[in-house]
């Protein structure tokens, strides 16, 4: 390439960089505004012109976490989302592996069926779930919400993992079989280590879904197992002084999951690259 082309490329890169900066800033405005809202009194929150310079107060953050039991809800949210991941990803991976190893003409319909189930409006499942929970005496318990979340999460997990397993050549299983492995051993020793990036991705998406889910959490939890989204929604509405509180709560609820994302971001891209989207 000529020197000219290289410098033009360089210039393009700068332009892209600047454009991205602008876009990112605009895109994050709602978040930035929410952070500012959480730091001011409601009186200054909704003014013309918008109040940008003000005396920040941490009062609302303090109130959310220390006077409203948010640590307890955080604990509940963590138990429920980790529980969901721990059940959903292993179960989904097993099924996805088997799906990837049976003939395509049988796997196809099963996958389609899974997806059809996924498209049913979730809110219509809330009532049957509640009826079931009442029948089993499990309302306001962790396992009930975990099971419900696993169930709605399974189709996506299976689909995602199916893509990964397809990328892993069948020759590997066959070689393992020739060495005398059972299918379980072949899966555990040969396949699973290769599928790890995929499992990270599946875990991350399950985590996002279960940490943020609202409707089932509202209906199936009670005083003891209430999760963060339900707790935050309880500040929405009527009282305007509660809006600074909801902003503070909303910022608070994001922090744990942002931390997780920061740590796992590299794995997310790598995992997605490795195969989930090639199937």
């Amino acid at each position: 390439m000529s020197v000219d082309a290289v410098s033009r490329r360089q210039r393009d890169t700068y332009l892209i960089f600047i454009a991205l900066c602008v876009f990112t800033f605009i895109n994050l405005t709602p978040l930035i505004w929410a952070v500012l809202t959480s730091l001011k009194d409601p009186r200054d929150a909704f003014t013309i012109p918008p109040t940008i310079i003000f005396e920040p107060t941490l009062e609302y953050h303090y109130e959310v976490w220390f006077e409203n039991d948010f640590f307890r809800y955080l604990k509940n949210s963590l138990i429920i989302s980790l529980g969901t991941v721990l059940v959903s990803v292993p179960a989904g991976s097993l099924a996805a592996y088997a799906l990837s190893r049976i003939p395509r003409r049988s796997a196809g319909p099963i996958l389609s069926a899974l997806f059809t189930i996924r498209m049913f409006p979730h809110m219509l499942l809330a009532i049957p779930f509640f009826v079931m929970g009442t029948f089993l005496g499990m309302i306001d318990t962790y396992p009930l919400l975990i099971l419900a979340l696993v169930a709605i999460n399974q189709p996506f997990t299976i689909w995602l993992m199916h893509g990964f397993f397809l990328e892993i050549p069948r020759d590997l299983d066959e070689a393992a079989a020739i060495d005398g492995c059972t299918s379980w051993q072949a899966f555990r020793i040969v396949i699973l280590p290769l599928a790890r990036p995929g499992m990270t991705v599946a875990a991350l998406f399950s985590l996002l879904l279960s940490y943020n889910e609202f409707l089932f959490a509202l209906v199936l939890t009670g005083t003891t197992t209430k999760t963060l989204p339900v707790a935050i929604a309880s500040f929405g509405g009527e009282d305007i002084s509660a809006w600074s509180l909801s902003a503070a709560g909303a910022i608070g609820i994001m922090l744990p999951i942002v931390l997780v994302m920061l740590v796992l971001q590299r794995h997310l891209v790598r995992g997605l690259t490795a195969g989930a989207v090639k199937g």
Binding site: L218, G222, T223, K226, V230, A233, S234, G236, G237, E238
Partner: peptide, 9 residues
Amino acid sequence: TIELMPIDK
């Protein structure tokens, strides 16, 4: 134990 939330919920 008290739980407060918007009326629709």
